[in-house]
């Protein structure tokens, strides 16, 4: 491919190739503080290629694929190339990563212990992790938490934080323009803007820690907190994992241990500020 970049995020190394220069240039600058070893052997190859020869030049249209791909993935406009690259890397992790149990969850660390937050897109787990990462916690990841099958530790995967719609304003006001990517307007998921994690999150991206609290956040509801049964937690976490089945019995053992050992709560919150207060209070009480 004409344009390329090798990038290390947490334990994974990606080789990203693109038919166009723009997505690679944006990645290179937003991931400037991450290792970009030009001559590394990558865990995954990501390809941003034209859907056809014509589509390389006229209304450029990106087909996202790589070592692992979805045949029916919808093509994206070149103006959303940064998002395409991020989705390409997520796709490789979701379909190909085998060295940890992958949980679709955000995570932050404090005093050597990890808070894991899982929920659907729109639950606020991403925004919450981003905000906590600015307020004394170490940001570990907004999309995937990696559960080590032997030690039970959570390992970071601190890629760029992908902020959507209203969350963009909330977080951009707090971190400043220098750490924000370009506004990607009107994507399939609405407006998206990426945020670069703080330097400490990147510097310690090889360091895991034991999980101490699991939350199921839900944004946009009156403040509330509920206990969640262990069987339900197990079921929700298997549904939030793309490689639980592929990893077999070690994943079963690790996940049942996680569910038994880590206290959990579901929390509803109307605003980010209230959520942070609830999280800090729960952390004091339970973790």
């Amino acid at each position: 491919m004409r344009h390329q970049l090798t990038l290390r995020i947490g334990p994974a190394t990606f080789r990203i190739g693109s038919a166009w220069p723009a997505p690679i240039a944006q990645l290179t600058s937003l991931y400037a503080t991450y290792p970009q070893p030009a001559d590394a052997i990558a865990d995954f190859t990501v390809r941003l290629q034209p859907t056809s020869l014509v589509r390389r030049f006229i209304h450029p249209s990106i087909f996202i694929t790589g070592d692992h791909g979805l045949a029916d993935a919808a093509p994206m406009s070149l103006s959303h190339g940064l998002l395409a690259a991020e989705m390409g890397m997520n796709l490789q992790m979701a379909l190909g990563w085998r060295r940890h149990l992958l949980l679709h969850a955000s995570s932050v660390e404090k005093d050597g212990r990890v808070l894991v937050m899982t929920g659907e897109s729109g639950s606020g787990k991403s925004t919450l992790a981003a905000l906590l990462g600015e307020r004394g916690w170490r940001f570990m990841g907004d999309e995937f938490a990696l559960l080590d099958l032997e030690s039970g530790a959570i390992l970071p995967f601190p890629r760029l934080v992908s902020l959507k719609n209203r969350a963009i304003g909330v977080v951009a006001g707090e971190v400043g323009a220098a750490r924000m990517g370009p506004l990607l307007a009107a994507t399939a998921k609405g407006d998206i803007r990426h945020m670069v994690p703080r330097a400490d999150a990147v510097a310690h991206m090889g360091q895991g820690a034991m999980p101490a609290l699991l939350l199921f956040p839900r944004f946009g509801h009156a403040a509330d907190m509920r206990a969640v049964g262990q069987a339900e937690i197990f079921m929700r976490l298997t549904q939030a994992s793309t490689n639980y089945v592929a990893l077999g019995e070690p994943a079963f053992t690790a996940l049942t241990r996680f569910v038994r050992d880590v206290p959990a709560r579901a929390i509803d919150f109307p605003t980010g500020e209230e959520a942070i207060a609830m999280v800090e209070r729960l952390w004091e009480e339970m973790a």
Partner: peptide, 9 residues
């Protein structure tokens, strides 16, 4: 490294 990347892909 480049050879390995090609081979694995």
């Amino acid at each position: 490294a480049s050879g390995w990347n090609s081979l694995i892909a």
